[in-house]
Design a binder for these strands. Structure first.
Lengths: 191, 191
DNA sequence: ACCGTACCGGAGCCTTACTCCGTTTCGTGC
DNA sequence: GCACGAAACGGAGTAAGGCTCCGGTACGGT
């Protein structure tokens, strides 16, 4: 079930090592240059050939997924478990902020997520994680009367990614994202 | 003031012809493949060499601007003049819808607009047109009490582009954009 | 008809995505 | 510890697009 076809035997040691290095370097390079950074650059900095990168990660999305999957899952856990007892509106807002901040770090990630919400490609599971979290937080907030009815998880998923995209594109004017988020959060409340 | 340096004499007839063809073809190709379509493809379909394209439009943004400038201006005119007498909230909503629909046609345009809001590059004027329109519609809506205070034109510009981006990325689920827009519009109202 | 110049075209160079296959390295059985 | 098969590696090769540069072409004024 692990990404690089660990169907049978465990990976060879050099393969495991290279894979780990690639993910680590990719995390850095994606954060620095965005999700459409040069894959050759990642291979170079990892000290492996481009062929090795492509064997471990047949597509850019596979690599991107390896980079963000854990972090997205952690955000979800954080939102649904740790904040489980707290104010539903607060929990929702906190998660939105974190997801948006994450999106601003890996510029271009939001676009990839939107694309892969409907297929079965690598990033699909990560999308699903986000979508489920959106659904849970939303449902709790709606039950608490903090969010009006008529909004569904897909709406929320779309909106959070849209604001995430906005965050990518407004590196200056940091409060701009907060202000946009404020509008959206206000819009989620009852009329 | 015209884009291709008509500082002195009028353009030569072949140049004028080629320029017009390029814009027309670009309009089609950008609409079909998005704002990052192949420029070589545009030159090919226009029946001119790539060098000719680059002489008329030194950057992709210059060409993109030539394609969308009139349309954006028309949307602004429509919003501020024709709808001048009608309900300010209605006028604002109508403009938002149109801009978003336009953004969905030229996928990637929103990103270019966000980037060039703060420089003096070609698309800057188009950005400014949108920004000014946002300011006018917003101000009227606020005076009419349809939009709460504390929202400024830059917020609105950001939000409309964010929803435009969302529209680019949800070709299916057409109502998804309406639903997102509904959330935002609701969020613009008083608390 | 002639000439100066504005304009044209595409070869050429660079960067990046992605593939293919000869070579190297691992790890297991003896 | 050695040998051998499989797993993994590396990078040359192919393709495509961005952008430049300059020898050639054709417009338009005289």
């Amino acid at each position: 079930m692990s990404a690089a076809g660990a169907g049978r035997r465990p990976m060879r040691s050099d393969a495991r090592r290279n894979r780990a290095t690639l993910v680590e370097v990719a995390r850095k390079v994606f954060a620095e240059h965005g999700a459409d950074a040069s894959l050759e650059e990642i291979a170079r900095q990892s000290g492996v050939g481009i062929g090795t990168l492509y064997r471990h990660f047949p597509t850019r999305e596979t690599l991107l997924d390896a980079v963000v999957r854990d972090r997205v899952a952690a955000l979800s856990d954080n939102a649904t478990r740790q904040l489980g007892g707290s104010d539903p509106a607060e929990a929702l807002l906190g998660w939105l902020r974190e997801v948006i901040r994450h999106a601003a770090t890996y510029r271009g990630l939001t676009a990839a997520l939107m694309v892969h919400l409907h297929d079965t490609d690598p990033l699909y599971e990560t999308c699903l994680t986000m979508h489920k979290t959106a659904a849970e937080l939303l449902s709790r907030a709606q039950r608490a009367g903090a969010v009006r009815a008529g909004v569904d998880a897909t709406d929320l998923f779309g909106v959070v990614n849209a604001i995430g995209w906005l965050a990518e594109h407004t590196p200056d004017r940091e409060d701009g994202v907060d202000r946009a988020l404020d509008i959206v959060v206000n819009g989620l409340r009852g009329r």
